[in-house]
Simulated scan of single mutants.
Amino acid sequence: MTGPLRPAFHEGQILAAADLSATVEHARGAAARHARHLHDWGIAEGLELVTRPRTDPLTNDRYVEVGVAAGIAVDGTGREVVVGEPVVLRESDFEEVNGADRPTDEPYPVFLTAADREPPGDPRPDVCGVTAGRTRVEESYQILFGRLGDERLVAEQQPPAVGAAPEAPPARWLVLLGYVRWTRGHFTGVETKARGVAPRGAGVRADTVAARSGSLALRTGREPQEGKPVLVLSGEDPPSLVFGLYGGGGAVAPLMTVAANGNLSIEGSFSGRMSVGSTLVASGAATDGMLLPLPSGVTPEQVADGRVVVHVRLTPRVPALSSDRVLFSPVEAAVDTDRRVRCRIRLYDPGVVPAVVTERPGAVDFLVLATVAATPGGDGA
């Protein structure tokens, strides 16, 4: 198989139509291969489904007029599909495809695909008055309504061969724009996602992304929006990696910062998977009958199935005594399998006649250690 052929010219050469067409096709092929292999196909700009409220003059039913905003998409063949101005969807086109369906609340998919057309006024007669072939091709588009479930066809499309030029119609590549709802002969709304499938945006394939300014921001929207997340890699002195939320004026409020020396700073609490040998601690005071807490990040399920082993240490607390001569001794300081404290203390006042020994509930200081058990083939909790 040969590679792409680039036209070459020489002095005195008679240029045929095929020579000039080859020049155009070479450039189109290079652009398509670039878009196909260095980018992921999808919507690059605009193309949202937009609505305008309307009223049926015969029934007074409220419905919406659905249109497609101007925009650009790149399909899986590398072909650019341009919608130069907003276009209103025709209800008659929808009825041709789905008019026989029973009434349903399920939304129907709307697709965009490339289409070649002969522009008005072409072909034109040549200098001898003979009608020549067309001299222009309009790289246009077509908006299609799908059947329920046709959105799955998008994922089943296969790109052309590596070196192939952009495919021309009738070969179709479907770009999902969204969904419309249909009730009693009219559109009644639009959706951006249905049955787990949403329109896809164009992307980029790269092993290296370099910022000329020394700071690289990864965010979820084109422009900074207050309250939206952003990841900022900064090469300024000192360099840092910051995850945070946009505040007013585009400033970033850090939630997590990794400094150049590896220090990690977080604004909230830290929780996550415990590795083998790691230990979490909880401590405090408890009285008789209280349930001891587990360390933060440890669940009762992890303790019950043996992934985490819990160790408890209790130290009886000296109670508040009514007199310096009252003697105190712990009778019981234990915890049961439910981590419930059992604490009893004994009091004796030798200055009281007759001598009386009393028992009452006590209090303890506790220390709860949770460690991850090392299991064969396991890697922690």
Rank of each mutant, 00 (worst) to 15 (best):
298 V>K: 05
162 V>A: 11
122 D>V: 12
147 R>A: 12
14 I>H: 14
297 G>A: 06
178 G>M: 06
326 V>Y: 05
337 T>K: 13
189 G>A: 14
32 A>M: 03
258 V>Y: 03
206 A>K: 07
72 I>L: 15
83 V>A: 07
170 P>I: 04
334 A>M: 06
194 A>P: 00
98 N>Y: 06
203 G>W: 00
176 L>Y: 00
123 P>F: 02
281 V>T: 15
38 L>R: 14
57 P>V: 10
233 L>R: 09
308 V>N: 01
181 R>D: 09
340 R>M: 04
111 F>C: 01
37 H>K: 09
262 G>Q: 03
239 P>G: 02
66 V>R: 07
188 T>G: 03
203 G>I: 01
36 R>E: 00
8 A>K: 13
299 T>K: 13
212 R>H: 10
348 Y>Q: 03
130 V>K: 11
193 K>W: 01
41 W>M: 05
181 R>A: 08
53 P>V: 11
237 D>Q: 13
100 A>W: 11
176 L>K: 00
357 V>C: 07
10 H>D: 09
242 V>N: 03
88 V>K: 03
309 V>C: 04
292 L>Q: 08
156 E>C: 07
97 V>F: 01
301 E>I: 05
168 A>D: 15
76 G>V: 02
366 F>S: 00
311 H>C: 05
361 P>L: 03
263 N>S: 11
375 T>N: 04
193 K>T: 14
335 V>K: 09
104 T>E: 04
329 S>K: 15
74 V>A: 08
381 A>E: 03
10 H>S: 13
194 A>R: 00
274 M>G: 08
50 V>I: 07
212 R>D: 15
71 G>D: 09
127 V>Q: 13
278 S>H: 00
146 G>Q: 01
18 A>W: 00
378 G>M: 02
354 P>M: 05
152 R>V: 12
51 T>M: 02
290 M>V: 11
109 P>T: 03
221 G>M: 09
161 A>F: 06
195 R>K: 10
315 T>V: 15
12 G>A: 07
155 A>I: 08
40 D>Q: 09
24 V>C: 08
283 S>G: 04
175 V>H: 05
69 A>Q: 11
375 T>K: 12
317 R>D: 08
272 G>W: 10
42 G>C: 03
8 A>S: 14
69 A>V: 07
352 V>M: 06
88 V>T: 13
195 R>W: 09
297 G>F: 05
30 A>V: 10
280 L>F: 07
143 I>A: 04
375 T>C: 00
28 R>G: 01
362 G>C: 04
342 R>K: 14
194 A>Q: 01
56 D>A: 05
264 L>W: 05
199 P>T: 01
29 G>P: 08
212 R>K: 13
109 P>Y: 02
48 E>A: 14
242 V>Q: 10
136 R>K: 12
314 L>C: 07
25 E>A: 11
316 P>S: 05
350 P>R: 06
134 R>T: 14
310 V>H: 02
304 A>M: 09
12 G>D: 04
124 R>W: 06
249 G>N: 02
286 A>I: 04
58 L>D: 15
240 S>N: 11
371 T>D: 09
47 L>S: 05
233 L>I: 15
256 M>R: 05
256 M>C: 08
276 V>M: 06
67 G>T: 00
335 V>Y: 07
315 T>G: 11
275 S>W: 12
281 V>P: 07
124 R>E: 12
116 D>L: 10
314 L>H: 09
173 W>V: 12
139 E>A: 14
181 R>L: 14
300 P>H: 02
